[in-house]
């Protein structure tokens, strides 16, 4: 409005030429000048409506989006790199792990072998002992058999002899008792 007042003043200046071809620039008779005023009002409204700020914000948003996209791609790559690194580390450790597994298997096998050998030794010893015992008893049995037979034979022979000598005496019962006693004592 203030501007308009100035304009009006300018327009009213007596210096203004009557001839339209000589119209000064700063005059309401000069349409381009009026357009300048309207243009300034328009620009004022645009600025008042915060259009430059909005445009700037839109451009910043775009930049942020680009930064985010770049960042995201970088993160994806770094994540993949990290996963790979962890696998590579694991791979490095795997040799030791494998060695450990093999070593453990070896020692377990060794222990099992030792245990089995010990068990075997014990069982063989048992078997041998049993066999020896059996043999010993067989030998003893054989010896007893021989002795029993000798005694039987001796008793029988003695019986025969005494029978022959004591036929007349008919003391068979007594003799038999005595023989039984002797047999019991010898046994």
């Amino acid at each position: 409005m203030k501007r308009l007042a100035i304009l009006a003043m300018l327009a009213a200046t007596p210096a203004m030429a009557a001839e339209e071809h000589a119209v000064p620039f700063f005059s309401l008779h000069n349409p381009p000048f009026v357009v300048v005023i309207a243009f300034l009002i328009f620009l004022g409204i645009v600025v008042k409506a915060k259009v430059p700020g909005m445009v700037g914000k839109a451009l910043d948003t775009r930049a942020d989006q680009i930064r985010k996209d770049l960042e995201e791609a970088r993160l994806i790559r770094e994540e993949a790199q990290m996963i790979l690194a962890s696998y590579e580390r694991k791979q490095k450790e795997v040799q030791a792990q494998a060695d450990r597994i093999v070593a453990q298997a070896k020692s377990e096998a060794q222990t099992a072998a030792d245990q089995a050998k010990a068990d075997l030794k014990a069982s063989i010893a048992r078997r041998l002992a049993a066999a020896e015992e059996q043999i010993a008893s067989a030998e003893q049995a054989a010896m007893r058999e021989v002795r029993d037979r000798a005694i039987t034979v001796a008793v029988a022979a003695a019986g025969d002899l005494l029978t022959k000598q004591m036929n007349a005496k008919s003391a068979n019962a007594l003799i038999d008792d005595a023989i039984g006693q002797v047999g019991a004592r010898l046994n």
Binding site: E145, V146, A150, V153, A154, A158, L161, Q165, I175, I179
Partner: peptide, 25 residues
């Protein structure tokens, strides 16, 4: 060795029995 030892042992034993029984052998 049984026969030999049996014969020997039986001999000794029989002789002893007979002797104990009072027979002469």
């Amino acid at each position: 060795s049984a026969l030999e030892s049996v014969t020997q042992v039986a001999h000794e034993t029989a002789a002893e029995i007979v002797a104990v029984m009072g027979g002469s052998a």
